[in-house]
Design a protein around this nucleic acid. Structure first.
Ligand SMILES: [Mg+2]
Ligand SMILES: [Mg+2]
Lengths: 668, 668
DNA sequence: CTGATGTTTATAAACAGCGAC
DNA sequence: GGGTCGCTGTTTATAAACATC
């Protein structure tokens, strides 16, 4: 089962389902299980030295407001109800305020030491009993104790036991047992936390050393194995840590960014990329098939964010990250040193406390569709220009450049019948978007799949649809569809003992159009497959998905909150490399135009992308949080994009703003 | 051997080597083998109604000229030597003129009925004996007889025999024999023609019917096989033709374009794409694994040229081709009806003349690096803006937009020591590009790999490097490196009988970083693999590469010239879908700006891309041709981009221009 | 709850160019 | 000096995981 491609499965995107739906349908097991996925405040701190508000507070608030098309009166009331500490005793100390733009949604700031599980319960009850807000965005300050506490909450009930089983029995525990565990518990709602459990602590579970040695000797053959280990230890402090031979939970794209961004020149040759990755992730040196280098090259070529350049007179060529796409992913951002409280949180683990364990925060997937704007009405428009606001130093004119107004967050269509409140102006076709005459308006949101914004048909509107400023979008509105209700789709599949009853995919030619793994029927083991013992660890063989479906091992033990950096392939800015570019060239304009795409102009100094700098600017912060939707009883992890410009002046904003300003400062 | 991914191998990109190097080194076998790859005049005829020259002839000729930095005096003489019918008897009727910009290069227009092989020989001799031009671009008018003749030339000498062997013995001929054939002949230079031999005539070679039947019955199992065949025959005129069950030589990307462009609305749902492809290529319905639909979806998502859109109130979503990337690939453009002269050209084939045989022109790969500009000094600049010149109707300002000067043709560094003659102005770093102090200036061209333009380091030049008009490039100059000499790297590998001596890749873990097929050692045959007999045809199993290396079956029999349309994934224009776009939005500019990226603005009417329209415009033509390089004795297939604006006025241009104008008109 | 649709990532592979032997 | 081989780079194919509807 190792021969097939195996995605790193960085972090699952699927929304988490609320476990305690007892109050609604009385499914028994009251209050039993709470899927509390903890999230980590992001709030990048780069370029914090520039502290002035880039945008004045004179921005038009109307742009940010949903133009009052709400049918729900509680929505508008939301905005003013802030700082109302919840009346529920469990909600004491919790700050709640309405989301400035999203209807039926409240922002819930949780104190660092509160009981997140109970808070979720209380919010769920509250959301059900009232016709008002039914979505709650949970977030907290930067204190990590909160996050670990939340994690513990999710783990304490049952998963911790499974974890113990895993820890002590390693491969001895048959998958059936684990499957029972999962089915007995909640068989859902946890797998969001289970994503990256395998990464780490595998070596320490007793199956480590012997296998590691054999892997070393066989995979790399006879060459330079032990020699390499010694003479190269630049950042090799974690080389001998536990879990170092596990496959890292990062994609090749992320690994390449780690490598390139580790240099000061922000460029690296292919060979150096190989070496860097091998040094920092011994998995690739010792257990991965040699094809991993092919994958590295493939990623370099495929993603436009990686740009090859050659210094002047050629010869060597360096790989760089396109500056507009560089999120400055670095390894130290995802390496998590085990702080005292963190190790305290991992108390269920009989861990040998030997040395700094190799903790890595799994990366969120590219979060463009998870990014939820929290835009206070005094600041810049909801949709801001990265270039203008945060990189005026580029010296690019970029005036009428790719000035497409793009949504920060994916589309949301509230189940309330009201016309989409987030499509304010200029939507002549949208405004009369009376639902399709079929059936009920239940959830006709167009797909919130991530990449494509789903262009409107535009064959009807003959004139400019995206005038870049007036209409926030042209029928494509903010997409929060992932916040909507989702029927819990992972029911118990207790019929089959070993794996989910995936039809019969054994002897028939594969019927589904997307192929699925045959669950590894010892299929024609290749030589290199037989010789990487780590890879053949039965615990490792499970893909997280399959684990979450059948065997619920790997609880949430070492999920120290996930670090969220964008990793984008950077495929949209006009740049070299396209056959189209080869054909199309701009007219002889003045030599001074020097648009953004000019490599020299765009990266006078290699730095991280503007969005990252945004995170460090004074009026904006990115932090992860949870969205609790009491309608569908789902709990989703999101990334919040909080912008706020009223802090410095302390003016014009109400108590909410003041409070949020404090929180904002706290988060930074 | 079927389980591994198998690329369609549309057409090989590698340059063809000149076979008759007898004159140089006297390798025996004089004049024995001529790899004459025929090329087909393209000259798209869309929008031919607009006949006025869009650009006036007032363009500055200096821009197009290499600024006279040539060290070779024969180069400048080239420009004036046109219409000089060659003195050689074999070159009678051949028009020869110097390339207007490329040094040491002559354009050779061959009459329709000339002997291409002899012309190549004569040109080779001429190129060797003189210090003058050593590169010859061969092209001809639109008459297809010429092309087929050239094809025949390539086949007549020896490949035709091999073809005969293949035809009569089918799979009986052991590969050794064919290998000997190839080795005895020229063991190189042919494989360029062999690329798509497998596609077609497989059924008619005697191994057809039985296998086809079994394939039908087994792959599709019991379902609806014969039923489907009858009730759906919309464009099914070629359904029962020979070769209809072979895998088409087109990539998924091309197939999707065929499908979408077949509709008048230029959009199609996924299911319709499936259906269209299945109907027009029964291979997918009957022999392909069901995973092919997964691949279709993958391609739709991966390539930015495919854009999903939903009409107004959602529900169904259509897939469209981004108008700027749509080359209007259609199936009828690649379907080749067997014309009388064409069938005459295929005389060597004992073909049953039954019905219209399923002839398909293999597509050239994306030809951005094959595009050779032939720019006459009176017309528009060498590098033109697609948007400006050919789509003023877009109404886009695009003034300082992505005005990066992009090379049309890849870089060429002539082996003459002179400073690169194609980097005329404004190259402060280039002008003193004294060769790297190592050794000789032999071929220090930076890699002409296709996609990336290899950004200059720009850390040294602090100021605008690509001023968009003055310097044609900044260190990256036109890349004709594929025209340079290439050591014939396919020598005889007669050591091993069956396959090239690829080290020992059998039991060791794969050593190379790019994996290679183990030549199909009956590896764990999957059920669906065993049941597609067509796919298991030994002739089909050979990838062209392996064929060209070891067994030289599949000669040039039915290569009716290749159709060259661009197929580009369209990855560079700013557009929806990127995480970057999600974050970055332009400032509140005027609603009128409506940049090019606006979907509605860009595609008021769905049509083909501008480049295609260019082909139909009066002053420009695309046609395939050959490049004969007598230095390295290579013969490469290229795509010429001939622009010419002096025709209507008949002014200012010398006899060359007049002649070329005639030719140009002839080509259109 | 399943299947169709869509998005990403992984992996294999073919192949081109080039430089080192 | 030519041939071979390995490294680098580009594309395409295929499998797969997973999300949404
Ligand atoms: Mg790239
Ligand atoms: Mg697409």
């Amino acid at each position: 089962m190792r021969s097939s491609p195996r995605r790193p499965l960085i972090l699952r995107r699927r929304r988490l389902n609320l476990p305690n739906q007892d109050g609604v349908s009385g499914t028994g097991a009251p209050e039993q299980r709470q899927t509390a996925v903890i999230d980590k405040v992001e709030s990048q701190k780069q370029n914090t030295n520039l502290s002035e508000p880039i945008l004045s507070e004179s921005a038009t608030p109307e742009v940010n407001r949903p133009s009052g098309s709400l049918a729900d009166p509680s929505q508008d009331a939301n905005v003013g109800t802030a700082t109302s500490s919840a009346e529920s005793p469990t909600l004491s100390g919790v700050k709640i305020m309405g989301h400035p733009t999203i209807p039926d949604t409240q922002l819930v700031v949780i104190p660092p030491d509160s009981d997140v599980e109970r808070i979720i319960q209380a919010l769920t009850v509250r959301g059900r009993e009232s016709s008002g807000p039914n979505k709650f965005i949970l977030l907290t300050g930067g204190s990590s104790s909160f996050h670990t506490q939340v994690e513990k909450l999710g783990l304490q009930s049952k998963v911790e036991e499974i974890e113990t089983v895993q820890l002590e029995a390693t491969a001895a525990a048959p998958p059936q047992i684990i499957e029972e565990e999962k089915n007995a518990v909640s068989k859902e709602g946890l797998d969001g936390s289970l994503t990256n459990i395998h990464w780490l602590g595998k070596m320490r579970l007793g199956s480590g050393d012997g296998k590691a040695d054999s892997a070393e000797e066989e995979t790399s053959g006879t060459d330079s194995l032990k020699v390499e280990e010694e003479h190269k230890a630049p950042a090799a402090s974690h080389l001998w840590q536990v879990g170092a031979f596990e496959r890292p939970p990062y994609s090749y794209m992320a690994l390449i960014q780690f490598a390139i961004n580790s240099t000061t020149s922000k460029r690296m040759t292919l060979k150096d990329i190989y070496t860097w990755i091998e040094e920092h992730f011994p998995y690739f040196r010792h257990v991965a098939k040699p094809g991993w280098k092919n994958s590295i090259r493939h990623n370099l070529s495929l993603h436009d964010m990686f740009v090859r350049e050659s210094p002047a007179n050629n010869k060597i060529s360096y790989w760089t990250i396109h500056p507009q796409a560089n999120r400055c992913l670095t390894l130290d951002q995802v390496f998590k040193q085990r702080t005292p409280e963190l190790s305290r949180s991992a108390q269920g683990i009989p861990g040998n406390a030997k040395a700094p364990e190799r903790k890595m925060k799994p990366l969120l997937p590219r979060i463009d569709s998870y990014l939820i704007p929290v835009q206070f009405p005094v600041t810049q428009p909801l949709l801001f220009s990265t270039l203008e606001t945060f990189s005026p130093d580029l010296g690019v004119s970029d005036g009428p450049r790719s000035c497409k107004r793009v949504k920060i967050a994916p589309k949301v269509l509230l189940e309330t019948e009201a016309t989409s409140p987030l499509a304010p102006v200029k939507s002549e076709t949208d405004s009369l978007k009376s639902q399709t005459p079929l059936g009920f308006p239940r959830r006709q949101a167009n797909g919130s799949r991530r990449k494509q914004q789903l262009v409107t048909p535009r064959s009807q509107e003959p004139e400019l649809v995206l005038p870049d400023n007036s209409a926030s979008d042209s029928g494509l509105d903010n997409d929060f569809s992932f916040l909507e209700e989702a029927p819990s789709q992972l029911t118990q599949d207790e019929g089959s003992s070993f794996k989910t009853p995936v039809k019969e995919k054994f002897m028939k030619p594969p019927a589904s159009s997307t192929p699925s793994k045959p669950i590894a029927e010892a299929s024609c083991l290749q030589p290199w497959e037989a010789e990487s013992p780590l890879a053949r660890d039965p615990l490792t063989e499970f893909s997280p998905v399959r684990v979450s479906r059948s065997a619920a091992l790997t609880p949430f033990k070492d999920n120290y909150g996930t670090l969220s950096f964008w990793e984008t392939p950077f495929k949209d800015l006009p740049y070299f490399g396209s056959p189209l570019d080869v054909m199309s060239t701009c007219s002889p304009a003045s030599p001074q135009t020097e648009t953004l795409e000019t490599p020299t102009g765009a990266r006078k100094r290699r730095s991280c992308s503007k969005e990252l700098q945004v995170g460090g600017s004074s009026n904006r912060s990115l932090l992860e949080g949870l969205v609790l939707d009491t309608k569908d009883e789902s709990l989703s992890k999101i990334l919040l994009d909080i912008s706020f410009s009223g802090m410095e002046e302390e003016n014009s904003i109400g108590t909410d703003s003041t409070y949020w300003g404090q929180l904002f400062n706290e988060l930074r």
